[in-house]
Nucleic acid binder design. Structure first.
Length: 267
DNA sequence: GTCCATGTTCTTTA
DNA sequence: CTAAAGAACATGGA
């Protein structure tokens, strides 16, 4: 469920409930979603105060008053919500943090997500730059280092971090670039256009509080409304909103990819 | 029963 | 050796 706009929305809706609050209880931890395995979460978190909550790529990073940090990744179906302690505990709830009058709960049926302890280590190892602040020149330099379909490259978190299957398709459509175009063959002008499209699409999605397909909700349990504005994602067989051409679906890097053959020509 | 799903990582192949 | 394609992970909905 979570790409950059969804994760950003979770962070901003969680902050007012959690920042400055002391963790008074740690409950119902399912240990197979902890990294490193065997992490003693109770020892690490009990009686610590949450100093800040930030987003890095698709990661929700918690900083504690002792300087330690950890992050939660929502995987495909993860939800991180804040609510009253007397709310019923739903299935697949793996972690509950008590913060006095609210509880933060992490649910994730498929368990592709998890809780990752950082300690004092940086969160940045091996993941690429933020798409909202990357320069066209940096993206161009990074794309030149590889030869593969641009869609696949946008999903590679080491190349650029935070974009997923929805916003890759939306950004490529906005930039008028065919998803199968090879990275090293894109000219500087096209990469400039793509950089702008990525930022525009992500900013608009953040404004709409993300895209809810099935699972995603913000920390306040509200769904995002950006789905109604999707121009390509999950619209195979439907008419392009710009030119009425039937939207095509292909598989790239094992992921469904929708594009407009007219607006996004092969060359 | 089948296929598909907002993600990442490990394995296999070229 | 590297890069890219493919499989695997676990659950639920259509």
């Amino acid at each position: 469920m979570p790409e950059l706009p969804e994760v950003q929305t979770v962070v901003t809706t969680l902050q007012p409930h959690a920042v400055g609050q002391k963790i008074t209880g740690v409950h119902s931890v399912r240990t197979d979603i902890l990294s490193p395995p065997g992490l003693r979460l109770l020892t690490c978190l009990k009686n610590r105060t949450i100093t800040s909550i930030d987003r890095r790529a698709k990661r929700i990073v918690f900083t504690l008053d002792d300087g330690n940090r950890f992050y939660i990744h929502l995987g495909m179906t993860g939800r991180l919500t804040a609510g009253p302690p007397d709310a019923p505990t739903l299935p697949h709830t793996h972690l509950v943090l008590s913060l006095g009058d609210v509880e933060i709960r992490f649910r994730d049926p498929r368990r592709f997500g998890g809780i990752f302890w950082l300690g004092h280590n940086p969160c940045d190892d091996k993941i690429g730059p933020e798409p909202l602040t990357i320069s066209a020149n940096e993206l161009l330099a990074r794309l030149k280092k590889t030869r593969r379909a641009i869609k696949t490259a946008l999903l590679d978190q080491r190349l650029i971090a935070g974009i997923g299957n929805i916003y890759a398709d939306e950004a490529l459509f906005h930039a008028g670039i065919h998803p199968r175009r090879l990275t090293h063959r894109l000219n500087p002008d096209e990469v400039r256009r793509l950089t702008q499209s990525i930022k525009r699409v992500l900013r608009q999605a953040i404004k709409a509080k993300g895209s809810t397909l099935r699972d995603y909700v913000a920390a306040d349990n509200q769904p995002g409304t950006y789905r109604q504005y999707h121009k390509m994602y999950d619209r195979a067989g439907q008419p392009c909103r710009k030119c009425n051409t039937t939207i095509k679906r292909i598989v790239l890097g094992g992921r469904s990819t929708c594009f407009c053959p007219n607006c996004q020509p092969r060359r």
